[in-house]
Design a protein around this nucleic acid. Sequence first.
DNA 1: CCTACCGATCGGTAGG
DNA 2: CCTACCGATCGGTAGG
Lengths: 228, 228
Amino acid sequence: MSVQAVDSTPANTPRRARGRPRKTLDERDDGNRRRALIAGAARLFRQQGFAATTTRGIAAAVGMHSGSPFYHFESKEALLAAVMLEGMQGALQRQNRALGALPADASARERLQVLVRNHFDVLLGPDSDFIPVMLYEWRAISALQRGEVNRLKDEYEAAWVPVLEALHAQGSLAADPVLARLMIFGALNWSAQWYMPPSGRSAKARARASLDELAGAALKLFLKDIGP
Amino acid sequence: MSVQAVDSTPANTPRRARGRPRKTLDERDDGNRRRALIAGAARLFRQQGFAATTTRGIAAAVGMHSGSPFYHFESKEALLAAVMLEGMQGALQRQNRALGALPADASARERLQVLVRNHFDVLLGPDSDFIPVMLYEWRAISALQRGEVNRLKDEYEAAWVPVLEALHAQGSLAADPVLARLMIFGALNWSAQWYMPPSGRSAKARARASLDELAGAALKLFLKDIGP
DNA sequence: CCTACCGATCGGTAGG
DNA sequence: CCTACCGATCGGTAGG
């Protein structure tokens, strides 16, 4: 314990240029701080909205000082765009994985079931701040950044198109597939406004349901040939 | 043209105490200025979001100076609450009128058709800034104000409950009526994010449909016994 | 990534 | 409802 004092540096040649204790090695540099900023920002943006969230608040949430987020991101808006891009990339990965696990001869209804269930997971499951932020803070990013996010969103939605068209062709989905897709996404996305996980305690007990139950109810609502 | 110079007032006894031209009689006092503020605020809140809208911007939109909105409203938040209350009162009136025009023996499906069509009108028709603001700026008002708005919202939604339960009982609606109501409102409310009226010019041509078409597609999507 | 700071903006108020 | 203004906050930066 006291041995270390032997090789202490003279006071006029300090090892550390500035007064703060240095972070341990695995907290330093990396992209970890950047990722922490994105995750913290996602949570605050979702809770308070983009405009009502301060960059100071984000910094504090990840243990930084007020100016430090700007070392990692050009602007508050760039941080929002990163949240959206990260969210869409993750959602797309999970969707591709879920579809890939399906047998090649899976029916259109089975495919829709997987798409809907995965979408609820993306919206309401663990680490689900990103997509709600994307959905509800659309106005706050520039047209350029919107374009990037849109490309991913189009790819995400493209997987739904053949499924809905097949269901329409076989009579399981009566509405025009384009309008049906818009309304189905509405029905699902809106859940971010009212859903509370079964573990939470709240007055709105009726709104508590597992994600499996939600997906089941959605399919019953949209498809003709599913009974009660 | 030049005759009017005869009865001009001497410069040292000005008729007007302050330098600005006085408003004409029917623009003065009344609750008209208050209503103008609510309508202007609704439009800006919808376009830019509550937090990103400045009270100065609202004042300018209705031809006032920066401090004047605070003569009519205690705070920016109170103005938002007024927008929401005004919107819900109007929506409720229109819904009651639409239901009242129905024959007493109207079927559950006819009732749902009227409710859905009216809801699209409230969301997307003329003067439709209020309800989208209410839907998307929920977080920004205090719990107290939320309570007032919630009472109207509950009354609005209460009209849907027996209709959906009847449809469920007769097998037209397979899903649990409570979850069905939440998802149906989601499908409809989401249209505020993508719908553009048929008159507008834009790349998203597919999204253009009349409100009648939207209501028709919605019923086809939700009800079992409606064919293509 | 911290320190110290700036310039602009914003909600709100006094006083008429 | 205007004029003039304040106090606080906020995004962002320089310089290390």
